[in-house]
Nucleic acid binder design. Sequence first.
DNA 1: CGGTCGTTTGATTACGATCAAACGAAGTGG
DNA 2: CCACTTCGTTTGATCGTAATCAAACGACCG
Lengths: 236, 236
Amino acid sequence: MLRKLERRARLGEDDRDALLALPHQLRQVSAGAHIIRDGDRPDFCCLLLSGFAFRHKITGEGGRQVLSLHLAGDFVDLQNGLLEVSDHNVQMLTDGEVAFVPREAIKALALARPAVGVAMWVDTLVDSSIFREWVVNVGRRDARTRICHILCEFSLRLEEAGLAKHHRYELPMTQEQLADAVGLTSVHVNRVLRQLGEEGLISRQKRSIVIEDWARMREAGDFNARYLHYDTCAAA
Amino acid sequence: MLRKLERRARLGEDDRDALLALPHQLRQVSAGAHIIRDGDRPDFCCLLLSGFAFRHKITGEGGRQVLSLHLAGDFVDLQNGLLEVSDHNVQMLTDGEVAFVPREAIKALALARPAVGVAMWVDTLVDSSIFREWVVNVGRRDARTRICHILCEFSLRLEEAGLAKHHRYELPMTQEQLADAVGLTSVHVNRVLRQLGEEGLISRQKRSIVIEDWARMREAGDFNARYLHYDTCAAA
DNA sequence: CGGTCGTTTGATTACGATCAAACGAAGTGG
DNA sequence: CCACTTCGTTTGATCGTAATCAAACGACCG
């Protein structure tokens, strides 16, 4: 779980020990469970140990916008270590296990061990980059392109986490949740998915997705993995 | 210019001195000048001293999505201090002055003075929060709501920076750029602006905007300033 | 004085939303 | 074990918001 952070900055032995020594409380949570709600003043931030989680916001009209998907190993809400009040919801997508780490411990760690602080910072910067790409996705791409794009992103991220191979994976969300991630209705998402299947770009049964033609899919989704910053490591 | 950072974390005298001692190169830049391009490997990050800047991405189809607006005093591209390659463009909206600070100096400062590192981290976390709100804005709100929302955001941010008063300000961008920020066409933005004027929510002449009825505007824009995190200060 | 850029207005089109309904799978309870 | 509910998926028909295409206007600039 801290393999991710280590990729983000060069950490010493002590740094790693300090991370592992973080006080925390483990909890089993089931699908749909709320971890944090918009407006809360949480006194912890949460590290996802297994399962999937997502962040989202609800508009005044009742619309939901999914903001991000989180995999096992993600520090889902590092923001909450430093910002006073949460500006969005965090909810479980599947059953899973979460470690709750006190805010103060995170802050203290960042101050006491700057290398760890920088690693966590980089982690949130990559999150930020993904948000930017999502702004582009929902703001300036048509339905088909949006969906192809997000399917590409999921494929790479799941593969990177060892949860997928050969562009074949289990979609960790319903079509309705997917729709809320790309700013469309579930009805339209369903139609586009069918069409992508007919065109031979993907095949699927239930939630299982196979990207049959990565090159065409990349093209169709206007996808460039640069924003995932897989190559970045802030050497200390 | 470092007033902003000081609001984000308690800094000591030494910390402030270290910030002011950052090596940098001043440059006058004119409207439209590119500061960083998508795909660059910059060796600096830039602090905006005067004028306005914005970040944006271009899709494969040629569409532009504006990602953020930056005011004098903003560390526009702190990401570039730590991420290897830029995932978006940064461009000047108006003439202005920019200080270029070497990447390595930023990294070194974050490691040597953790309190400053945390302050910069918090700054990027707030940026992140704004990106999330923009995802919601373009993903799940209709044209009218989007535009009201962004006009509210600009009003507060400009006022906070001392560049506006009583919900009256000079819009730092053209309607076309505004359209690219909210994921609409400039034609439609223009129509909505006219309509908002007719309804008495705003009045305007050229770029000058007055929000005539803040309460109704907030309502119309589904606007809640929480995501700007003005109250947040990570005490050391 | 033309030329460019940004704004404004009109007419038409189209993409995706909405409304509606059926279906299958999984889970619940009698 | 089967009726029944619930949830997610699928398909069809219609509607509406914002895009597109087109053109005129005003301001500023060289």
